[in-house]
Simulated assay, not measured.
Amino acid sequence: IIADRLDANISDTAMRLLKDDPQTVRARIKAAEAKAGHFILKDYATGTLKPSAINRLLERWRSEGIILDLLAVDYADIMAAEYRSDNQIDNLRSIYIDIRAIAHDHDLALISATQTNRAGAAAHTAKMTDVAEDFNKIRTADVVIAINASEAEKKSGEARLTWVASRNTEDNFSLLIRQDREKLKFLTKVMGRV
């Protein structure tokens, strides 16, 4: 599924149309490769990936001369804690602290996603207090950006990115963006502050 999403985005093709003309999709992806950086995709079953496995993988790649700039974890909430507890909040706190330390040790940017609680899902704009399960995720992150879109915004291909928490910069502001969800393009244009 992730590979299909990437193919849709890179080839500028709607997900539902990927199989209609695979030669064109393949040609567009090949053309994009000429100006692209390296991308490595690893897939793990839900609840099996531990932070230590990420660290070992990064160390192995480093020994092979592969240094990452960005690590995207999709998503940290469904990783496995190094030492499982019966307390889900303890598990999440451990996961977030451990992957933050890995990002620091390997001098790379780390991005992940989490979900809002019911109040956040119903809100026009999610706030930092609307994070699901454990507020420690907010405390651990350097920057937390909420992705918000009303039904009207979704229909018009828009969304709002709201800086709900930031350790070292301004927060509590939103940027209006344009998206193309059918082609899995998260951001096609920044419209400005709202």
Rank of each mutant, 00 (worst) to 15 (best):
A149P: 00
K189C: 08
E59K: 15
E153G: 01
R193V: 15
E182C: 00
L71V: 04
R181T: 02
L108C: 13
S112D: 06
I10G: 01
T188R: 00
A45Q: 10
N91C: 01
I138H: 03
E158A: 00
S52D: 11
L92Y: 03
I1H: 11
A72R: 01
E151F: 03
I145V: 15
I10N: 01
A119E: 09
I78M: 04
A146D: 01
I145S: 00
T13L: 04
W61D: 09
F39V: 13
E133D: 15
A165Y: 06
G157H: 05
D86P: 07
T13Y: 07
A113F: 12
I1L: 06
G157S: 00
E33I: 10
S150T: 14
K185Y: 05
I29E: 12
L17H: 12
H106Q: 13
N168G: 10
M191S: 08
I40G: 00
Y96F: 14
D105H: 13
S63I: 05
K155C: 00
D43S: 14
N148Q: 03
A109Q: 05
T114W: 00
P51D: 07
G37K: 03
T162V: 11
I95Y: 05
E182P: 01
K155H: 06
I111M: 11
A14F: 09
L187Q: 07
F39I: 15
S166W: 09
K137P: 04
H104F: 08
K30R: 14
R100E: 14
R16D: 14
L58V: 08
N55Q: 12
I102V: 12
R84V: 15
A81T: 11
L68N: 01
K35A: 13
N136K: 08
E153M: 13
E64A: 09
H104L: 12
L108P: 04
D98T: 06
K19S: 15
E64W: 03
V164D: 01
I78Y: 04
R118F: 02
N172P: 02
R28S: 12
D69E: 12
R193S: 03
M191R: 14
A72D: 08
A80E: 07
R100L: 10
L161Y: 00
I29Q: 06
G120D: 07
A53S: 08
I147K: 02
Q23K: 10
I147Y: 01
Y83S: 08
T169E: 12
D142H: 01
N148Y: 06
S94M: 15
K137C: 02
I54T: 08
T169L: 10
H124C: 09
T162M: 01
D171L: 07
E170P: 07
R193H: 07
V143K: 05
A103V: 15
F173I: 14
D107T: 07
A159V: 03
D7K: 11
T125D: 06
